[in-house]
Nucleic acid binder design. Structure first.
Lengths: 309, 309
DNA sequence: ATTAAACCAGAAAAATCATTTCATCCTGTA
DNA sequence: TACAGGATGAAATGATTTTTCTGGTTTAAT
């Protein structure tokens, strides 16, 4: 097998996989909340206790949970069954997995006493937490429309400023490789100039963390006037979101008074990856040949000797 | 509270947090592997079975696992105890949590029958999987040294090509905000020219997914000759890794014949975040004032009206 | 080579815990 | 108020884990 470096293997679809997990139980706690009013009164006591402190029940036996919720043991079982689980153990296991997957990445702040290893861990976990949120909030229909538009596009331009500027540049790279005629502009003047020269079959992807950058709004307006389709990677409910033909809403934060500028760029990048993967999927074998050749040519830019660390 | 957009709150440290989880069990499977030779012969059978297919045991009763591993039930319990758990259930629960946190993000490939929602999920999970790996493989000592070097640096330059080019640009942004004199060069000529003009107190951060890009190797050589300190975000065991003063090893892939160019850039970005956070921490309150002013000034570039979606 | 000691593994008993059954108790309605 | 209906819990049942104890196997010393 070829070296892993940039991209030297054949199948662009081969990545990583989810072990079988029904989509139902991915958001277990949300599911509990949703079914709350379908539950009987005493079962609801159990639900409320679990929603209040999900982690604690992992250590509990059925009798403990019954006592803590002030109901009888059979009720706990009925609660589990009402949610579609086999029984208490089955529910507990699912909850453990759920808490393992998303429960860990809750809020925190780095303190001065943290070691570098702690900071590392926390920054990574913060990022992962954001990604999990964005993943679950993503609208597949919007994605689908965006992928369709990108696949048909004659030319794709990525616009962004600041941190979103580097996302735009990265996106250009990605789409370039897929043989899409792509450009990235991070300068407002050039954006404007390019925007007015766009045609109907062109697509603009506007990337913004704030959703309110004036210059970007202007570029998008110009692009739309020129007849181009505008896809937006923007937070919901912002001026830019309202302006785009195909807004893809990306809300990184849920807790208001928290500073996470770290993660939103990364969420944007991953969404770009999703779009690129979607476009790659919908294109022909021809493209895969192209990718093979591309990788071969990149290899000539590299040194070959392997030296020890 | 101010709007969340780019970065409008006061405390740059406030991000996200880990719910209490002993470090021991974060890498449960690795732990099993490490203790493998301390186990008795028949207990090892159990361990091997679990390492082979951890997910399957979640559905198993103790007797099933005993049968599957070809040992008796007490042996299974002794195995759990040997690893420091209370018993079988306790172990199973921890494993469920572990698999929930990282076990899901194992290998797969996107198939043509996948919906866009599936692709979305898989791309996100692939990314998260890589991040989890990189997080756990990261060397805190190397990070610490790099942070120290960056904090003392008179000037920091980021070098990268291709996808790593946009990482370099992003890194420049990030450090720029921390009042570090930073530059990013993605053109080999300019890199070379800049590299030879560096001084002893300067730091270069070389970013590469392959670790073997010729032009980058050359830039690094020039920078070192000029007396600058070179930090490398590179895979272990590559020519570049050998060349850097302070290599930070980032190995995104573990499975050889798999194509994951998607995730390595992102891992690099997160490592940049970690470094930036480290530098921010080690600098004064003065910096925090600066950040406040910076955010105020950025706000003037934005539209203020809130429009509905 | 032989024997004792320590150790290891499994069968069966015991304990624990989840589940089912069934009787009781509410709640709402005629 | 009486009755139907479902909702709840006590106690019995059943399943699964855990402990105990015995037979076997390795190890080391004579």
């Amino acid at each position: 097998m070829p070296h892993a470096g940039l991209c030297t293997t054949l199948n662009p679809y081969a990545i990583w996989a989810i072990r079988g997990k029904t989509l139902d139980n991915i958001n277990l706690l949300r599911k509990v909340q949703l079914h709350l009013d379908e539950l009987r009164k005493s079962e609801r006591k159990v639900a409320n206790y679990i929603l209040l402190d999900p982690a604690s029940m992992l250590q509990m036996r059925i009798s403990d949970l019954a006592q803590a919720s002030d109901v009888s043991e059979p009720t706990v079982i009925r609660f589990c069954r009402a949610l579609g689980f086999d029984g208490f153990q089955s529910f507990k296991l699912q909850l453990a997995q759920y808490l393992g997957s998303s429960g860990n990445y809750v809020q925190f702040s780095v303190s001065d006493s943290d070691s570098v290893a702690d900071v590392n861990r926390k920054v990574f976990d913060a990022t992962i937490g954001s990604l999990l949120n964005v993943r679950d909030e993503m609208d597949p229909v919007a994605l689908e429309k965006a992928i369709a538009a990108l696949s048909k596009a004659r030319r794709v331009e990525f616009y962004g400023f600041g941190a979103s500027g580097s996302v735009a540049i990265d996106a250009q790279h990605k789409f370039f490789r897929l043989q899409v005629s792509a450009a990235a502009y991070t300068d407002p003047h050039i954006q404007h100039m390019s925007a007015i020269s766009l045609k109907e079959k062109d697509v603009v992807v506007a990337i913004s963390q704030s959703g309110r950058t004036k210059a970007l709004i202007q570029s998008v307006n110009l692009a739309r006037e020129a007849g181009a389709t505008v896809i937006g990677l923007v937070p919901r409910g912002t001026p830019l979101a309202a302006l785009c033909d195909l807004p893809i809403h990306i809300n990184v934060e849920e807790v208001e008074h928290v500073f996470t500028p770290v993660s939103s760029r990364i969420a944007h990048l991953v969404v770009i990856d999703v779009l690129a993967m979607g476009v790659a999927r919908s294109s022909s074998e021809h493209l895969q040949d192209h990718l093979k050749r591309l990788n071969r040519s990149l290899r000539t830019l590299r040194a070959n000797s392997k030296k020890p660390v």
